[in-house]
């Protein structure tokens, strides 16, 4: 399980990185972030890039900052850095909570926020969080910079709106009030989730004014629990409302079976996990008032 050979460069600016990707476009150049998904794939020889452009020396990509009420994370911010950063706790506590579920601390010490989003594993935590929070992903390319809403970024399993030669540089996350919750179901601690649920629910006088809920693991891309959001919004939710919200969403799901669960079991687990996520977010929202 040794990786195949490749050429390597560690540029110090985004411009330089883009140039390297362009120059080596024919040599199957890829971006290397923390490597916690890519290197295992290379060890299995399931990925064989000819050239890796390591972004670790680009300092501007390693910073966390607040722009007013927007949290801005450089793509190369290590997951453990973000997990414990005060700006994240303040502006996006859902993200901080979700980061605690990403594999294990030694993985998070290398893995990056941008790397996880760009890898777009259907079972991963951060894509669902980005979707729930309405994050914007800033992409640099040969033609300049563009911003892609999370809802448009994830296009398939391990597939994103990033074009060849483009680099995800930044994630911008608007602050959300209310109660948040990240819950997931894994078979053993730290392994890939069967289902993850990222929720932010805002309440006013007991009534839900806005609910943003996303699920991971139920489709090729993270999905919004739109039916649940609609069902909850405008109500003072009781158990029956929550159950109806969950049922409305679950009725639309058709997760693929795999070695860890049939479609039916995955739906069962999604049902329970979604309900627990909503309940926790609601409880926290009500506690915060």
């Amino acid at each position: 399980m040794k990786p195949p050979p490749f050429e390597y460069a560690a540029p110090t600016s985004v411009a330089e990185a883009l140039e390297l990707l362009a120059v080596h476009a024919q040599g199957e150049a890829r971006v290397l972030a923390g490597g916690q998904s890519l290197v295992p794939l290379m060890n299995f020889r399931l990925a064989q890039p000819g050239h890796l452009v390591d972004l670790r020396r680009i300092e501007e990509l390693t910073r966390i900052r607040a722009e007013g009420d927007t949290l801005v994370l450089g793509a190369m911010v290590r997951q453990s850095h973000a997990e414990h950063a005060p700006e994240v706790a303040l502006l996006a506590p859902l993200l901080a909570e979700a980061l605690g579920y990403v594999a294990h601390p030694p993985i998070r010490n290398s893995g990056t926020v941008g790397g996880s989003l760009a890898h777009a594993d259907p079972a991963a935590e951060l894509p669902a969080v980005a979707l729930a929070l309405g994050a914007e992903l800033v992409v640099a390319g040969p033609q300049g910079t563009r911003t892609v809403p999370a809802a448009d970024f994830f296009v398939g399993a391990f597939s994103t709106a990033l074009e060849p030669g483009e680099i995800l540089t930044e994630v911008r996350i608007p602050r959300r009030g209310g109660g948040h919750a990240f819950v997931e179901f894994t078979r053993t601690h730290g392994t890939f989730a069967i289902v993850g649920v990222a929720s932010v629910i805002e309440v006013d006088g007991g009534g839900v004014t806005r609910a943003s809920i996303a699920l991971s693991g139920v489709d090729a891309v993270p999905v919004r629990a739109a039916a649940a959001e609609r069902t909850l919004t405008g109500t003072v939710p009781d158990d029956a409302t929550v159950r109806a919200a969950v049922d409305a969403t679950v009725a639309e799901l058709s997760p693929s079976a795999d070695v860890h669960g049939s479609t039916e079991t995955r739906i069962d687990i999604a049902r329970a996990t979604l309900r627990r996520g909503i309940e926790l977010a609601l409880t926290r929202a009500q506690d915060r008032r």
Partner: peptide
């Protein structure tokens, strides 16, 4: 597992150049 600048990492999924 080894410590890189005080933080634990997996040395089997880390290229030395990184």
């Amino acid at each position: 597992t080894v410590l890189r600048d005080g933080a634990s990492i997996r040395s089997c999924t880390t290229f030395a150049v990184q």
